[in-house]
């Protein structure tokens, strides 16, 4: 399976969000959110890291379609702190013969900034095609906690899998590339590769060495979740990889890991993000 650079015939849509620290509080200072991107207003929660803004991403189109070419750039200026999540999972619809959806997310975290980029999982419907790319660039002292997860769904119950998933997560630091996790998979191979689990994903923590072990410990107690932690102290990166039996277990795993990471970061459990 080739990993084509530009496979979508749809009109490219590019969204952009810029967060800036102003006197100790992070504000959304720039936003460009053309259809289908939509955002809520920023929230603040007590107990969050200093000045953190929380923003929910929404879609006004009901998911990703077979000719979508969507790009999202999130920039945090020096010292800013933001929690960016989604209102719900992104449904990747049956491509119905179209070339497949492209979703390209770029995270730019500058000096001393903290970004929690925790979107809900992508739901890969029967026949769907998705080229998902997340690339992060971290400046000195930047911190990033990010999730990337998928689950499969066969609404007709006829065993028809998604068509393909091409997935790439890359992180670069001030000195160059730090990691690249990439795969290309036909839908028919999913259950074999996961040992029968319908959900899989990972949480990556960069510049947050205190978070890896607590996340792994917390998630280990979740029923229906099978997880393992890789730590790379030379690059200050931890990768918590997991599979889950169903969407409920996956959702709990993501929340549990995030809460554990936050607890280790601030000493307090975070305020729940209602969805």
């Amino acid at each position: 399976m080739k990993s084509g650079a530009a496979i979508s015939r749809g009109r490219p849509v590019r969204a952009r969000l810029t967060f800036r620290d102003v006197a100790g509080r992070t504000h959304l200072m720039g936003q460009l959110t053309p259809h289908p991107f939509h955002i809520t207003r920023p929230f603040r929660h007590p107990g969050d890291p200093q000045g953190m803004a929380t923003l929910y991403l929404q879609s006004s189109s009901g998911g990703l379609y077979g000719d979508d070419d969507l790009g999202l750039s999130i920039s945090l200026e020096p010292g800013a702190a933001a929690h960016v999540t989604t209102q719900a999972s992104s449904v990747v619809h049956d491509a119905r013969g179209r070339p497949g959806a492209v979703q390209d997310v770029q995270l730019d975290v500058r000096d001393g900034a903290l970004l929690e980029y925790l979107p809900d999982p992508a739901i890969l419907m029967s026949g769907s095609r998705l080229d998902n790319r997340v690339s992060a660039r971290l400046e000195q002292g930047a911190r990033l906690l990010m999730a990337d997860a998928q689950l499969i769904h066969d609404p007709d119950g006829d065993g028809r899998a998604f068509d393909y998933l091409r997935n790439s997560v890359s992180i670069a630091g001030p000195g160059g590339p730090l990691m690249l996790d990439r795969f290309a998979l036909s839908g028919g191979a999913w259950l074999t590769r996961t040992g029968g689990a319908r959900c899989a994903g990972m949480i990556v923590a960069a510049g947050l060495p205190e978070t890896g072990a607590p996340m792994a410990t917390a998630i280990a107690a979740e029923p229906g979740v099978y997880a393992g932690l890789s730590e790379f102290p030379d690059r200050d990166i931890s990768i918590l990889r997991f599979i889950a039996t169903d969407g409920v277990a996956l959702g709990r795993a993501l929340v549990t890991a995030w809460r554990a990471a936050r607890q280790s970061l601030t000493g307090a459990a975070p305020h729940a993000r209602r969805k």
Partner: peptide, 18 residues
């Protein structure tokens, strides 16, 4: 062979780390 290296085998990958 695939054009680019990249694998999805989470069961054994997780097991190796546990």
């Amino acid at each position: 062979a695939p054009e680019y290296p990249g694998a999805f085998a989470p069961l054994v990958e997780i097991a190796a780390q546990r």
